[in-house]
Design a protein around this nucleic acid. Structure first.
Lengths: 244, 244
DNA sequence: TCAAAAGTGTTGCGGCTACACCCATGC
DNA sequence: GCATGGGTGTAGCCGCAACACTTTTGA
């Protein structure tokens, strides 16, 4: 009863932020034994997996993520489904999938998740480490199947959510400076923020708590460290007006 | 090649607004020939269907909707996937599904859409008319499978989208009064809006166009009619600041 | 002492809220 | 003429944008 279900998969777009760039964690697919290396074929893919029969979708996605980053209980949101009947039409990619799964694949509908991880705290398992790569979202190569489309939609979703949900913190270390937070918003949203106004704004947030601690070892005035206070956020959350 | 795919379905939460209440279009399921009417069983369900093999997900949802409302090219958004392995666990419901589909159902992952329709312009086909019912979201009975959960999530999604997207118009007649628009927001969001301020606000919107026409046959001062100008909206759309 | 980033206040403007009365129509 | 909902203006407050200099540290 714990067979793989060859009709449904999950794919995870795992975002990370390295202080300068927004990145995505991609996997170098296995080479086939008889692969003809003269015929070039995309080698990078999103981490994903067919679901297994008795497994919930969210559980599948968590499993993929745990295997890949060593991280448990992290931010993970289902954001879309991709089910175009021709999404696996690329014959090279399909042959690869059949060979590696050992299953008779016909049509696969994939449930897409996006995840936010703290790059420095992630810890890929040994076996995957060598095949996993953080790639900047601005320098994505052609990926297998429809994975570029999936990432684009994940990015759009992330930008939208970031405007209304306090999820930026998920991409930063537990303790972070206001400058790091500002950079994160600037990079992901593609905007510039006035430093003073930004500080005034976030200074009012009850759920952004300053710590009695400063940066160390920087060759300039060290900044105070902050943390996201989840409990304060849950308490304070009040939905504001709407925009028509 | 156009068999039904017994692993994946679509379900549509079709919202309508009747000036006072937000409603959902539900279907009375067929009775089984040998159904024991002494054993009560939920009779209402969301309109939905297994997808067919060569059909895109969106196309399936559009098909369901066209059959049900006679409406084509209407607002339809995929908003979630429900894939809990035990979502079909209710043995009565499952027996019913097997009997009506004639297929060996094991696990079905369903892709959920929500749709906004103008109740008065919808026109269910003869065969469905008698089995389709508009039910207020405040008076929902127990439905089959996990359909109550699906509707709740659709409602949450609708409220969220309504705050940032101009989709309320989809629920109103092509020509509507400002009072109708205000009622719609008040009912769906569960808030009260100051009439003067509401008018001032929407008065500024370039994409809300007043028509040289008034209501007729009302026993009070007739209101001007407005329409949503989609082109003006597309042009004007500029993403505003973000909320952290 | 220099380089690099942290941190800080004020002013003007525009948008939001709160609030009460007259108007046009059908009956 | 009365009941019903349509339609209008103002004043105060708050939040947001614009803008430049001093401070603290390591090298």
């Amino acid at each position: 009863m714990n067979r793989l279900n060859p009709h449904i998969s999950v794919d995870c777009v795992i975002f990370g932020f390295d202080e300068k760039q927004l990145k995505v964690l991609l996997i170098e697919r296995e080479r086939l034994q008889d692969e003809n290396l003269d015929i070039p074929m995309e080698v990078l893919k999103l981490p994903g997996s067919l679901i297994s029969d008795a497994e919930d979708l969210d559980a599948s996605a968590h499993r993929v993520l745990l295997e890949l980053t060593g991280l448990d209980k992290i931010f993970l949101h289902q954001f879309s489904v991709f089910g175009d009947p021709s999404r696996l039409a690329n014959t090279k990619h399909l042959a690869w999938l059949k060979a590696t799964s050992g299953l008779p694949i016909e049509r696969v509908v994939t449930v897409a998740y996006y995840s936010l991880v703290k790059i420095k705290e992630s810890n890929p398992s040994e076996t995957l480490l060598s095949r996993a790569k953080w790639i900047s979202v601005n320098e994505l190569p052609q990926l297998v199947f429809d994975h570029n489309i999936i990432i684009n939609k994940a990015l759009k979703t992330l930008r939208k959510e970031l405007r209304t949900e306090p999820i930026g913190f998920e991409l930063l270390p537990k303790k972070f400076t206001l400058r790091q937070l500002q950079n994160l918003y600037e990079v992901i949203m593609g905007i510039n923020l006035d430093n003073r106004n930004f500080r005034k704004r976030v200074g009012k947030l009850s759920y952004l708590a300053v710590l009695p601690e400063k940066q160390k070892g920087v060759s300039h005035k060290p900044a105070f460290l902050y943390k996201f206070d989840k409990k304060a956020f849950e308490k304070e959350r009040k939905d504001v007006g709407f925009v028509i």
